[in-house]
Design a protein around this nucleic acid. Structure first.
Lengths: 129, 129
DNA sequence: GCTTGACCTGGAGCATGCTCCAGGGATTAA
DNA sequence: TTAATCCCTGGAGCATGCTCCAGGTCAAGC
């Protein structure tokens, strides 16, 4: 990407995998900093803006609530490093818990799938649902 | 648990970690089979009922949408084994994707946390947010 | 000049998943 | 007998995270 290159909202949407409406919504709730405006008031996203939005999408995909992402983005913008670190570390920990939980249930589901025939025939006990 | 033992709704809630309101809500939307009623119309959950609800909570904690859980529970109750298997297998696959996604973002977050000082000082490039 | 297409704003609407409340019944303990 | 406690139903309300729409602007192409 060239430095200084700008993108329209539809390009930014394409690049981040968000919809145009979602981008505007995120801006409205303070999740994304308002980009510069071009003539006619159209949004012009810089590549740095797009990068930030992309990181937000990573956080979002790991189930971080938008409110927490907003807190993080605001701490970042206020250069409150400690708060940034703390929020990110907290989220790291929550992802780790989630990984454990998912792995546990995955084991259970795999077990059920492997033993489906037996469970079906009632040869295995303790299998509800 | 004794066979034939029954539990009140508050006991079932306690055992499954759901609220009483949530249990009734799940029953209303068909996620949980209606338990027997005692004198006065009070719900009496059998240990099998509780086991089923517990499995539902596992699925729920892995982000399976309630509609899909309902489909699964209904297939189970209709003894439609093929459908049960297919739904569970689909969910297994979605958990596996989620695990990959979480791991990827976890790496990214750990990297950011480890290099926080440098990123903060602008010694590292490419670190947005 | 006129149409087309991309963009704008503000606000309504929607899907999901609960959560709470009013109004009422039955049992239990003092 | 009365109060407390637990339960019931039906329905309203709420938080989250979008998604859609009406009504309007602006620039480019024919």
């Amino acid at each position: 990407m060239l430095p200084g290159q700008t993108f329209t909202i539809s390009e930014a949407a394409e690049m981040t995998g968000l919809s145009i409406d979602t981008l505007r919504y995120y801006e409205k709730i303070g999740l994304v900093v308002s980009p510069k405006r071009g003539p006619g008031g159209q949004r012009m996203y810089g590549s740095e803006d797009v990068g930030k939005i992309q990181f937000v999408t990573y956080l979002k995909r790991t189930n971080m609530p938008l409110k927490k992402i907003i807190a993080y983005v605001q701490s970042y913008n206020q250069q409150d490093e400690d708060s940034c670190y703390a929020l990110l570390d907290e989220h790291r920990s929550s992802i780790e818990s989630k990984l454990t939980e998912l792995n546990t249930t995955l084991q259970l589901i795999r077990y059920k799938l492997e033993h489906f025939q037996e469970i079906k025939d009632g040869k295995e006990k303790g299998g509800n649902l």
